[in-house]
Computed example of a mutant assay.
Amino acid sequence: MSAPAPSTSISAAPRILIAGAGPAAQALVSQLERARFSGTITLLSNRDDAPEELLELAALPKVSVRFGQPASFIDPDNRRVTTADGMEFSYDQLVIATGSAPVASPVEGANRCLSYSTIDDASRIGEAVKEITRELGRRPLGILVGTGAAAGQAEAVLRARGVRPIRTTVRPASVVASISGLAASGIVFEDGSSMNGDLVVLAEERVPRDGLAASAGLRTAPNGGIVISQDFRTSVPGVWAIGDAAVFDGVRLGLLVAAASAAGACATQLMTAASAGQQVQEAA
């Protein structure tokens, strides 16, 4: 009798699916690539356009970016996600990175001022302050608009960079353009009164986009956000959350840790989970 032929079965490469394509998702893909993740990574973006940063990721081996294909439904039992156009994607590990949204509509002229919504905004504000300080030749006077944790962090950032912040909790009707063109210099309220300075920072309230997660039965926080543990796991096996969509200990993740740091830690956990899942497949 001839000896049986050796088995040639090969276990499928692990699949990571990311719902969202913002800064947190991009940082996660970069970290997984740096760690030489051996499986495939698919990003589902709600953007129809193709910004340069996403095109760079799409050019990476084993990375696929689906533009204009936001996730609309999660089937955690079968580990499958359906997009708004009806496309279906299976996954071994799913990461929700849908971000957050402002509570109120934008203030008129808001594009002319600085904004603070996550820790990652601190470095951008710091660079702007350097430029304004250099232009003025003195310590700048800053107008800070907002309440809550984001505004508190923004105030600390401004003080640490030499800005004299004047904080208001009253929402302005519009932002006044700066003569130098470097940044907005003041705000105008509904009653016609105004506040003037050298720069304006908006640190208004935001809410995590957690509708996708809630519809799939994931645990969400009373004030919004996908509840995660320290290792970024949600309440449903195989589903993780990162970025401003996630909440840890009642606080938006973006206010607790920088996107790159969170992505690095999450990537490590995903690699471990993917490896464990592949070992189970090989043993089956």
Rank of each mutant, 00 (worst) to 15 (best):
S9V: 11
I10S: 14
S11F: 02
A13V: 08
A13D: 09
A25E: 06
V29Y: 07
S30Q: 15
E33D: 14
L43G: 12
L44Y: 06
D49V: 10
E56W: 04
A58L: 03
I74R: 06
P76H: 10
D77A: 15
A84R: 09
F89V: 04
I96C: 00
T98F: 02
G99F: 06
G99Y: 04
S100D: 07
A104E: 15
Y116G: 04
A122R: 03
S123V: 14
G137F: 07
L141Q: 12
L141T: 15
I143T: 07
L144D: 08
A156K: 14
R164A: 14
R164V: 05
I166Q: 13
T168L: 04
R171P: 13
S180P: 07
S180I: 01
A183N: 08
A184H: 01
S185W: 02
I187V: 15
S193G: 13
L199E: 02
V200N: 11
E204A: 05
E205L: 12
E205I: 11
E205P: 04
L212D: 06
A214W: 00
P222D: 05
I226N: 06
I228Q: 06
R233N: 13
S235I: 08
P237Y: 08
W240K: 08
A241H: 13
V247T: 04
V251A: 02
A258K: 12
A265D: 06
T272C: 03
A274K: 03
A276N: 11
Q278W: 01
Q279S: 09
